[in-house]
Every structure is written in C-alpha cells, then in structure tokens.
Design a protein around this nucleic acid. Sequence first.
DNA 1: GCCGTTTTCGGCCCGACTGTTTTCAGTCG
Length: 581
Amino acid sequence: MTNARIADVLSQIGTLLEIKGENPFKVRAYERAAEAVRSLSEELSQIREENDLRSVAGVGAGIGQKIEELLDTGECKHHQELLEEFPASVFDMLRIPGVGPKTVKLLLERERISTVEELEEAAAAGRLRGLPGMGEKTEQEMLRGIARVREYSKRINLGLAWSIAEAVMAQLREQAPVDRMEPAGSLRRMKETIGDIDILVTSDHPELVMERFLALDLVSDVVAHGPTKSSVVTEGGIQADLRVVKPESFGAALQYFTGSKQHNVKLRDFAVRHHIRLNEYGAFRIEGGEEKRLGGRLEEEMYAALDLPMMPPEMREDQGEIEAAREGGLPDLVELSDIRGDLQMHTTWSDGRDTVEGMARAAKKLGYRYIALTDHSPSQTVANGLSVDRLKARRKEIAAARKAVKGFTILEATEVDIKRDGSLDYPDELLAELDFVIASVHSGWKMDRAAMTQRIIEAMGDPWVDCIAHPTGRLIGQREPFDVDMEAILKAAAKFGVAMEINAYPDRLDLKDVHARRAKDLGVKLLINTDAHAADALPLMRFGVATARRGWLEAGDVLNTLSVSQLRSRLRRARSRRRAK
DNA sequence: GCCGTTTTCGGCCCGACTGTTTTCAGTCG
C-alpha cells in the first residue's frame, strides 16, 4: 500500500472523527500524521523494516498500529467502522465552502442528507431554514458554494499560477495606489500546484485598491469583497484573494499568509512556550498580563522575536525546518543566480522551435556560460528523433554556433531513450563521442514496478549515461508517475555516480521536492534543467530551482552550478568510475 | 492521539468573518 493511500485513510479517519464530534486534538493528530506521511520520501513499508514507524513525527502507538494494519491487510478496521457510520459521500459535502463537519453532522442527523445533490435540493426547497443556526441566507450561500465547487474546484500548476498572479499584480500596480506588494500562500512557497492566488499589499487608500481590484480586466467574477479582503475568480477560473494591511503589519501578515498552516501551527506552539504571541499583526511578548510589541513590519522580525533566523518560504512545510533553524543548521539554499548552465533542451533538429544558435544566444542572455543540446534519439519518431547520421550532421551547425556565440560553451549531447529492456537507443561507441548524455523513459509507462525500476537502473549502469531525465515521467494533473522504487533508483544513482534531473518544466517538476531531498541525503548529485523546446522556455528554470529549494538543496548539490571545466571533469571522473565497474 | 529546554500528564495556534444570535458557534486560512 502506497504512502499516498495510507495518508488518505488517515485523513479520512480524522475527518470522520471530527464529524462525530471527537476531541479536536485527536482529530488534528490524524490530520498531522496524514500530512507527515504524504510528504515522506521513503515508503512506510521500508521505514517499518529498517526502523520504527514511530520515527515519523506525528505517528505514535495508536496511529502506528493502524498503519501496520493497512500495510498488512490493506484495510483498517477503525476506518471501515467509521465509514459504516458516515457514508463516503460526506467528503464531497465538506468541499462546499461554508460546510464543515458540524454542519454535515446536523444535516445527517436531522434531515438524513448525505450527498451534495440532496443538500442542493433541500436548500433550494427552503427545507434547511428551520434547523438551528440556519436561515434563508445560509441556504443561498450553500447553493452558491455548490455552484462554485462544480465550476472551479481545481488546482493549477505553478507555472500557470505565476503567470496569472504576475498579470494581476502588474495591472494592480498600474491602476491602484499600492505600496508594497507580495504574493503569499502556496504560490510563495512554490508548491507544485496552487489552489488559489494570495496577494498582499499595503496602501494609504485601501478602499480604492479594493475597488480597482474588483474592476480589473482579468476578473471574471467577484466572490466576496470587504474593506481589507476581497476574493475574485480570474479569467483562468482560479480564485485570487487580495488583502490590504497596514505597513507596520506587512511582515507579520506576509509570514502569516505564506503558511504553511502546519509550519505556522508549530511556530506558534514554539512561541507560546516562550511567552510570545504571534498573529497577523505582529509578534508580542506576554509579561504579567502586559503585551509588548516586538515587531511585524518585516517578516524577519517575526522569526527574530523567537530568536530564529528566517526560513525561506519554500522550506515552510513543517518538515524539520524549525528544528533546523533552532540548531543553527538551516541549509544555504541554491538560488537561481547560482545556475550557470542548462543541460536539457531541444532544437529544430528534433522537436524544438529554435535553432542551435538561437538557443545558445538566449541562454547567454540569461547569464549562463553553457548549454547542452539534448535532441531526441531515433525511437522518438513523433519528436523527430535523430538517426545516427542526423546526430552527426548536427555537428556542423553546432560548430558554426560555437564560432558565432563567443565566450560560451555548447555541449554536444542527447536525450537518449531507455528502451524496455533497459538498453539505450544509440550504441555506446556513439554515446562515448558526446560531451553529455541524458537518458530517459518515453514508452511503456505501464510496466510493473519491479520491471520499470530494473529498466532504469540498467541504463544507469551504462558508462556513458551522465544523468536520468524526468525520472518518474509524471505530467502533473495529466499523467501519473511511473510506478518505480525511487529509493532503489536513488541508491543506484549514488552507486554509479549518475546525476538525477529536476526537470523545471512546470508540468513535470520531476524529481519532485521530497525525492530531491532524499537524493541529497543519499549523496546523489542533481541537475536542474528546463527541457526547453523553445528559447522562451529557458526562464522556466526558476521553477526547477524552487523545487530544489523545497528539497533543501544547496548549490553544492546541483551540478549545473559548476563552471564548465569543473562540470566536465566531474562527468569524466564519473564515467571512468562506471567503466571500471 | 501525540509529545516533552516548564510536563510521562496535561496541554495542544490564532484571529476574522458570517449568520444567526442576544452572547456565540461554525468555518476558514
């Protein structure tokens, strides 16, 4: 049973206990454990073998026993019993804005309503207004909520979310009297998918800012509007929230609304133990009933109030960052400006839109010192993969581009297909002539776990393979990752000295954050590449760097922060080590 | 149900908003 499935069961238990009216702290314990399991990089079955399930933060005796039951039998008695009490359809009801566990319980007990459809019918018929705490307005609000869930309940990928957010902020900057302005929420933490866009501003004229916000071209629907907070739906169907705060509270609000929720919960817990209160207005010391303000204008002041350094937003997931900060062990995360080259891109020779020289000029303009041209290999017929002859023919154009673009290195490279049996789509003699070889899977997605894992490990044993590209093949929201034993693959990468790619393309972000972090722990080096199919895709690098930062990577963990000579010698050393094996 | 630089028992983040109330419960982020 996968971690994701186990996390779902734990989270469902938490939700059902909440509906039941159980101790809220018990409910939170299940939610916290579910979140912890979801973001593990190792499989629970493996952790159980090597260690104790209780080594996972938030998993104790009770939840540990339930996880064991799930691993052994695929089911959990407690979960099954709860599902008999409350039908699974209640999870859909909880997705309606304004409907929480208490409401679900009330609806079930008093009106026998257990589905969204039944709720819609009852609200439309005015049958809810007799219930305690409910009136006509509540019914209308529920109907609106149901409509909104049906229309907009989707998350979008990070790249799209940023393009919408940047458009909104640019229009706002132009049309409204805003001073400071920052995105917050999961967007600022650079999560791979975004539910809604949070923007925070300061202004001397909050009402005017709100008025202009609601009137922006990009806004297609207004969900709510007040003097300090408004919510709209943008053209892309994604919700955007704008908050206006006072300058002296901007840092506090930014910290607060950046989250994550789990990070904030733990931070506040830490604060309370030190007699400090944190909220969206500032940090306060509590002394004998008196409150002394410690700060709030800058985000750093919120952390400084607790004697902690500021943790980068990408780390704020309650994955050990607060503990690391306390011990002075925060990593110095890799930054976009550390990146000196991009080692996966495609040109007009295969399925790219721009020429060799076009890609080189664009990369140089970004401040890079080198690129690798990784056009596809022959079996990628749909992508116009290069035959051996065409691969050789490409050299002429590369030579010309090397002359034309001075002070810049163009590596002759390939993205070679890993065939079903783990062999490669070009002969070794040819790969040996190339500066850089990236290998990847583009076929047979549905292979079983053991076979797919073996297939990739086989390819890593080839002396000329420098890197595995987009190692799980996922397309966020479109295609599931391959079923592979990532732990085994990362261990093989460490053994063979093969780099793993973080593909920066926002649909991929593959490796993902937790796997990148695990790779680092195992001593594997990473490469952050855009896989650009046109020059204008090269700036997508920022999303790959963000993913690396979410995986706690430092510049030293990422090979394309090296100079070209350092990179070459490292690749050479790894190749000869593999040849010796 | 979890957990320990005040604790192996007794705590567990915080405030705004909404609609329904007449002092507050529920939801949300």
